[in-house]
């Protein structure tokens, strides 16, 4: 059973529908005991980092992460896994992965500007092998974000995209995973990535 963390930020509809299409059992909850009982949790999120950290069940997420069960953050949910963000002033994150969240500058050297948010389809480049990427080919996924993760430790970087900066697109270490883009809106590759995550959840559950 997958627990989708409800903390009042963002649209939980499309991600839950994506799980339904993959025949995964899930529940949506903000309750500590319920979330801790899940085989894996999914942390979605749209909005600002600071607002999210103020309302997020931080202790619950940290306790779950420490249990060793898989956790997947999506979009803002992935950014929250890192140490801190510059969004609306310096804000501390969950600190489950090493790295910082920074804003796209919007300008390149010669003073030329580029568009922020990074919105649209961009190609993933696989960097490190991971069960999340198993059997998949590099393809386009759908991004919408104005801040990006600068992953300090390249080991956690599983796939990246290039948008004037190196964008950490898929990250993962042990049981903590994140996707900056919206897998539920990223057509075939997006669904395949979610499917791989669900398989990983099942495999680890079997071992546990």
């Amino acid at each position: 059973m997958i627990g989708i963390v409800d903390y009042g930020m963002g649209n939980l509809f499309s991600v839950s529908k994506a799980l339904e299409r993959l025949n995964a059992d899930y529940f949506i909850s903000g309750d500590k005991d319920e979330l801790l009982s899940a085989d894996a949790i999914l942390l979605p999120g749209v909005g600002s980092f600071r607002d999210a950290m103020e309302v997020l069940q931080v202790d619950t997420i940290k306790e779950f992460a420490a249990s060793g069960k898989p956790l997947l953050g999506i979009c803002l949910g992935m950014q929250l896994l890192f140490e801190d963000s510059d969004e609306n002033g310096f804000t501390k994150g969950l600190g489950l992965l090493p790295g910082h969240v920074r804003r796209f500058s919007g300008t390149i050297e010669a003073g030329e500007t580029y568009k922020v948010p990074h919105m649209g389809w961009n190609k993933l480049e696989f960097v490190n092998s991971s069960p999340l990427l198993e059997g998949l080919e590099e393809d386009y996924v759908y991004f919408v974000h104005s801040y990006y993760v600068d992953a300090e430790n390249s080991e956690v970087l599983l796939a990246k995209a290039n948008y004037h900066e190196e964008v950490s697109a898929v990250v993962g270490k042990d049981n903590i995973f994140g996707m900056q883009f919206h897998p539920e809106k990223s057509s075939k590759l997006g669904m395949a990535l979610l499917s791989n995550f669900l398989r990983l959840v099942d495999e680890r559950k079997a071992v546990r």
């Binding site: 499309s14 994506a18 990223s186 057509s187």
Partner: peptide, 8 residues
């Protein structure tokens, strides 16, 4: 549409 479609 949202239930069945995996594009924006």
């Amino acid at each position: 549409v949202a239930s069945e479609l995996a594009i924006p």
